[in-house]
Amino acid sequence: MLESFESVGSLAASPWIYGAVALSVLLDVFVPVLPSGVLVIMAATAAAAGTAAEVPDILSLTLCAATASVLGDLVAYRLAWHGGDRVTRAIARSRRLTIAQERLGAALARGGGALVVLARFAPAGRSVVSFCAGAAHRRARDFLPWSALAGLSWATYSVALGYFGAQWMGASWLATGVSLGALAAAGAGATYLVRRGQPA
């Protein structure tokens, strides 16, 4: 098992891991089942098993995941913006999507974007928010700063889980499992708050 983490650690320290993380995080706005959170946590766990000289890779990993998250949001936002009536009709067919769009619109109109940040942690929440914002033609200057905060918050949390989990419990599958459990718990909590419509 230790050898397995050492192997992943050597790969995590190479440039390819950033491309894999970026692609996974960017695409999971369209395919929410992609395990982007798992990949980020595994990479951070592997980095924690390395030497002190590899610590800056944690910052690079965080920035890579955050940037890819914002770019994915922007692509989904623009596609929905130009999708016009087709996207609007698709949203109208779903009561949950319609409610989500209304809540997002109200939050952005009040100058608050906590909903955007919370939705980044909820399963498929990022997809709903990005597509709804674009379909409703919300201004980019109202949406993108909150998307950036959401992406940075999610990336920082995910990397911290993997890194500090490995520091406290060792680079083991147990540490990774606990970190993934904490990420899932954050997602469940975010889903609960989004459904209650509490964020302002």
Rank of each mutant, 00 (worst) to 15 (best):
residue 68 A to T: 13
residue 198 Q to P: 00
residue 197 G to P: 12
residue 86 R to M: 10
residue 9 G to S: 07
residue 193 L to R: 08
residue 53 A to G: 12
residue 165 G to W: 00
residue 115 L to C: 05
residue 21 V to Q: 09
residue 191 T to V: 11
residue 6 E to F: 08
residue 33 V to K: 00
residue 87 V to N: 06
residue 186 A to I: 02
residue 130 S to F: 06
residue 54 E to Y: 00
residue 147 S to F: 13
residue 37 G to P: 01
residue 16 W to K: 03
residue 200 A to R: 14
residue 193 L to W: 09
residue 105 G to F: 11
residue 123 P to V: 15
residue 52 A to N: 02
residue 154 W to E: 09
residue 189 G to Q: 01
residue 170 G to L: 02
residue 34 L to C: 07
residue 94 S to Q: 10
residue 72 G to Y: 07
residue 168 W to L: 15
residue 5 F to A: 01
residue 140 A to Q: 03
residue 146 W to R: 06
residue 148 A to D: 04
residue 95 R to S: 07
residue 157 Y to L: 11
residue 183 L to D: 00
residue 48 A to H: 08
residue 158 S to P: 05
residue 155 A to M: 11
residue 48 A to I: 04
residue 83 G to V: 13
residue 149 L to Y: 07
residue 148 A to G: 14
residue 68 A to R: 05
residue 111 G to M: 07
residue 166 A to E: 00
residue 141 R to Y: 05
residue 6 E to L: 08
residue 109 A to W: 11
residue 90 A to C: 12
residue 151 G to R: 00
residue 99 I to Q: 14
residue 191 T to F: 10
residue 97 L to S: 03
residue 135 A to Q: 05
residue 56 P to V: 03
residue 68 A to P: 07
residue 2 L to R: 04
residue 22 A to I: 04
residue 160 A to G: 15
residue 188 A to S: 00
residue 36 S to I: 06
residue 70 V to Q: 08
residue 66 A to Q: 03
residue 129 V to T: 14
residue 128 V to W: 15
residue 162 G to S: 08
residue 34 L to G: 02
residue 151 G to N: 12
residue 182 A to S: 04
